[in-house]
Design a protein around this nucleic acid. Structure first.
Lengths: 227, 227
DNA sequence: CTATCATTCAAACGTTCGTTTGAAAGGAAC
DNA sequence: GTTCCTTTCAAACGAACGTTTGAATGATAG
């Protein structure tokens, strides 16, 4: 662990991670072969097994590199909001913004590779392979608990069952928006060029999700909420 | 094309399609091998290539079998609504219900295999493989055009750009809800047992999505809509 | 200069992949 | 009974997969 050991080691590992991010996004985890990955990174075929141990371990490393800081940023944003508010309740819209902001800012990170990762992340939620889903679930768990509690405080009159569902829906919207920036063009008229303006996208998402989260309860009269 | 030719042929093809639906859902398109698929269907390894030509053609057949009728059902529901309404404008909620109903009813079809397919469909939207995405897009195109027009009539004051985005969000919520009924459990407290009650789920989705679609425009004051 | 050690490299490992092949099976037509 | 034709079957195809190996490489420490 001398000076020598640090620089070239990190060099190679980083190049592999960057290439993996891009190629996993393009071809999926099974579709991107070791030969593809190492060729894309400009390293020897054996380098992934040497530095990470296996392909599965590489997949985990790809997620861990971005997801841990991203969730930390989320939590920091939420705590900043709560401190600024003193004891007062936050609005649902503000909490949503804290949650999705970290994801959306990554879309704009074109040269740092964040954009590839954000799309990859959007796809990972529906990945068939169980280990990957479990990994994602584990990495998100602490942040989700915190945000759920924040939403409960912001909307005390909304039943917990319903909140859980609506957070689920919110997550789906975000995941799909991240994943599909370049994929299925289901609706004619979508303009790809403004998809990557994170600020506009954030406003649109907050408007849509905020209204959805605060919607009147499904079955009952318009204002059953006031109990 | 005698009597003989029809019965056993459909038998084998159907068994392959059923097994493929289930196994593609569990392992993904690349993860489910031909040997897995044919073993699951109880047919010879060569049967897929004989009846469908290739694995890719099988994937297409799996989607086509369910998706074409599903979109036809969607369009029929919309037209029924419009006829019932006479010349009057439909509500956004009613249109949403017509759109998502066909998908949700499939979740409840446990013995017919529809449930496997609905989850598979949810995943296909974020599939890395381009041919699959293009296939899905092509199959949805006519229905999406129709529903977009219906939403425009129902919400004439909403700018078209914004509508396209909100339909995109709506689609994401639906796709994720279909795909994730058994996958990522991001939010603690979600109860799997009531996930498959399509009627309750439909009401919840309509409440959430209806509010989102009708949300005030993002940037401006609460009632910029009235222009 | 020599010894050490993390890293890179070309080559090969055994396995599994999707597909093809040619023969066997078996009912229908005459 | 023989011919025809669709379907099934066991076996094999070459290609690509993730991983392992043992020798070269090259910078560092004594």
């Amino acid at each position: 662990m001398s000076v020598r050991a640090i620089k070239p080691l990190k060099e190679t590992q980083t190049r592999i991670l960057d290439a993996a991010e891009e190629l996993f996004m393009q071809h999926g985890f099974e579709g991107a072969s070791m030969r593809m990955l190492t060729a894309g990174a400009g390293v020897n075929l054996a380098a992934v097994n040497y530095h990470f141990g296996s392909k599965d371990a590489l997949i985990e490393a790809v997620f861990r590199r971005r997801l841990d800081p991203m969730n930390a940023e989320r939590l920091a944003a939420l705590e900043r909001l709560e401190q600024e508010a003193g004891g007062k309740a936050l609005t649902a819209a503000a909490i949503i913004r804290a949650f999705i902001g970290a994801s959306l800012r990554m879309i704009e990170d074109t040269h740092g590779g964040g954009r590839s990762f954000s799309r990859l992340l959007g796809r990972a939620y529906t990945e068939p392979a169980k280990p990957i889903r479990q990994l994602i679930g584990r990495m998100y768990a602490p942040a989700m608990e915190r945000f759920k509690a924040a939403f409960v405080r912001a909307m005390p009159e909304l039943p917990k069952d319903e909140l859980v569902w609506r957070m689920h829906f919110m997550f789906g919207t975000l995941a799909y928006t991240l994943a599909a920036t370049d994929t299925v063009q289901l609706i004619a008229g979508a303009k790809p060029e403004d998809r990557y303006d994170a600020r506009v996208l954030e406003d649109r998402l907050v408007a849509f999700l905020g209204a959805g989260l605060l919607a009147p309860m499904p079955g009952a009269q318009p204002v059953k909420i006031a109990a």
